[in-house]
């Protein structure tokens, strides 16, 4: 640093260096965004999803499905949820959207899969607020104590529960607090973020 190396001049921005650093930074940023959204390997944490999101699909074919009532506990709020756990589920034409309020207004994050490409999930657990659709149960037992069901987290003794060997739903529309799965394969999926509220219909 000592003398000589720098000409003595006023402090200021070296714009050539800024262009270089900015370009490198933006390229890295693009790469980070691509890597984060493209692979499921890097979990993306959303802290602000204090609201439900919507999942729609044309069909859902499930095996070993369990449903029961439970409570998803927050700090102040506890919201009642219907937990739906499905050991093996195949969905078609999936669309997931979450609308988030940001400093720049509402933003909708949408994940869609390709038309006619099926989505496969194992050990799917959904905290439901509401589910609409045409349901078909096979080998169903309803009114079973939730703690004696075959699967599912946070099942409380004494709570209502039901389970079915098969569960098929057409025209599914789900409002959920959370979705978790052991594997969730979305073929030909696209993820987009748009300003404004555009939930899946």
């Amino acid at each position: 640093m000592a003398g000589g190396r720098h000409r003595t001049e006023k402090p200021g921005t070296d714009w050539r260096r800024f262009a270089l650093a900015g370009t490198v930074g933006l390229v890295l940023a693009g790469g980070t965004v691509a890597a984060t959204t493209a692979t499921a390997a890097v979990p993306v944490y959303f802290a602000v999803s204090g609201s439900t999101f919507t999942v729609t699909a044309d069909t859902l074919r499930g095996r070993d499905a369990v449903q029961y009532a439970s409570v998803a506990s927050g700090t102040d709020e506890k919201h009642p949820v219907a937990v739906a756990s499905i050991a093996d589920a195949t969905l078609t034409n999936l669309c997931q959207s979450s609308v988030t309020r940001t400093p720049l207004g509402a933003v909708t994050l949408t994940i869609r899969t390709g038309e006619n490409r099926s989505v496969h999930a194992r050990d799917l657990v959904i905290d439901l607020q509401r589910l609409d659709g045409d349901l078909r149960f096979k080998q169903v037992r309803m009114g079973q104590d939730a703690s004696t069901l075959g699967a599912g987290p946070r099942a409380q003794q004494g709570a209502y529960g039901q389970q079915a060997r098969r569960l098929d739903i057409d025209d599914v529309k789900v409002r959920a607090w959370s979705v978790a799965a052991a594997t969730f394969e979305l073929a030909d999926a696209s993820m987009s973020i748009r300003p404004g509220a555009h939930p899946c219909a």
């Binding site: 200021g12 714009w15 650093a21 930074g25 980070t32 965004v33 984060t36 890097v42 400093p103």
Partner: peptide, 30 residues
């Protein structure tokens, strides 16, 4: 980006990257 709500929905991320580049380009001669 992966750790903070998608980099504050990309806004904070872009601000930080541009600010970082500006800072990197700062010349403070002896």
């Amino acid at each position: 980006c992966p750790l903070a709500n998608f980099g504050g929905f990309l806004v904070g991320m872009l601000l930080a990257v541009l600010g970082g580049a500006l800072a990197f380009a700062w010349r403070h001669p002896a």
